[in-house]
Design a protein around this nucleic acid. Structure first.
Lengths: 239, 239
DNA sequence: ACAATGCAAGAGCAATGCTCTCGTTTGTTG
DNA sequence: CAACAAACGAGAGCATTGCTCTTGCATTGT
């Protein structure tokens, strides 16, 4: 956060925040594709053209909202993990992190759709969004690798017959982790593979729930999710 | 398909199909939320108001396109399964069905986003869409249950310690299968639970791939998907 | 042959994203 | 302190959207 020097700078920051908040509020009422820059302008008592002094386009406003959503979700997940007192109970940490992810998602379905739903066409996520987007999965990786490093594991799911060495497939993911964190996961490609799968399962399940694909198949979404993440933890060898 | 009796009926069916095709084509160029009824009208050489004789609203056009997409995907998956000659090789059938699902999805990303992305706000999927939507998962269930019924299985993943009986959680799904198919899966709640999870993983993975969430983590999407479904098959006990 | 119906066209409404041009306010520089 | 440049808010305007309504024309079944 840069310090606001002049009064104008301060006003600019404030108004920018106001616009973002109004956009946020409108997002909760309508939905990503329905977000109207004019309506946001009305909410903050400005004329539509004035908003363009702060955001060059509707997409730029969306990008800011996307980053905010990623950060909020990431913070919620991290906080839930850190609230677990026994830091060696990796299963509890895993479940808490997953649970917080779901709770934030069902509490903010429109924000969830904004970041995990279909991208708005023609909109390419700028680089600013990638770091906030990784917070949840990075935390999950930390928990899993931490468990394996400290030996708090039971047997993880073994690769089935016919499976090839997943090293080349997950090489990029391993490189990313190696670069952006101090976690060491050399010689654990199968675990990384399973972690990616679990990650996909978690958000696939949430998307299914929030987008209505589980209607008719599952009634108690919370229990279903809980049982799902529990089995994923088992597959990952979390004791 | 009802037989077109009068010339007027025939023209109506033809024009309806033309509108749908134009909508389809436009969808491939832009995206669900960008689909413009006026542009579709222009494509088929009509004025926008004329289209309303065939579809009461933009949402109704979208619904028709959604059903078409579900049916196309379902048909592709079923055809891939049926192309496997050895009907007892349930693993091959599973992999073929999954592979076809992905192939259709990457070939039709916009149609995929239409059915598995964020729903358009205020739009509630009408009842007509639910049966076509179930074709893929029903086929997957058939393969899995068929394998278990005929004994072509190795050990499926066991529920981890602390897991509760998933029966109540998956009761609705079992009731649905019992009603809409002749598959018998009594006393297999854990398998149903794992099947739902695998289903979520498959489409979670596809959503991640198509919506750009795997960028930077996976480079060879095809191999990654293949290895993913292979492990899911293992978890489901497919030999 | 005729009345009823189906249909396409056009005008029109409210709303959208975005651009451009105005004065006005603000901050910096000579 | 004065002058200039940059930032700013307001308003008008453009092209576009989904949708409604009315008006005629063509097709249909009797």
């Amino acid at each position: 956060m840069t310090v606001a020097r002049t009064a104008r700078d301060r006003a600019r920051q404030e108004i920018t925040a106001e616009i973002l908040a109004a956009g946020r509020a409108q997002l909760h009422r309508t939905g990503p594709s329905e977000l109207s820059l004019r309506a946001v302008a009305r909410d903050v008592g400005m004329v539509s053209s004035a908003v363009y002094r702060y955001f060059a386009s509707r997409d730029e406003l969306l990008t800011a909202l996307i980053i905010a959503a990623y950060d909020e979700l990431g913070a919620a997940a991290e906080a839930a993990d850190e609230a677990v007192e026994d830091r060696t109970d990796h299963l509890a940490r895993w479940q808490a992190t997953c649970r917080a992810t779901r709770e934030w998602s069902v509490a903010h379905p429109h924000d969830y759709a904004l970041i995990y739903g279909s991208p708005v066409p023609g909109y390419a996520a700028p680089q600013d969004t990638v770091m906030p987007a990784t917070r949840v999965i990075v935390r999950l990786v930390e928990i899993i690798v931490g468990a394996h490093a400290s030996g708090h594991t039971s047997g993880a799911a073994a690769p089935p017959a016919g499976a090839v060495d997943p090293s080349p497939v997950v090489a990029d993911a391993m490189a990313f982790i190696a670069e952006h964190s101090d976690i060491s996961l050399e010689a654990l490609p199968e675990l990384v593979m399973r972690t990616l799968m679990a990650w996909s399962t978690i958000f696939g399940t949430l998307s299914f729930e929030l987008f209505g694909h589980l209607k008719g198949s599952v009634s108690d979404y919370e229990s279903y999710f809980e049982q799902t993440t529990l089995r994923l933890a088992g597959d990952l060898g979390l004791a």
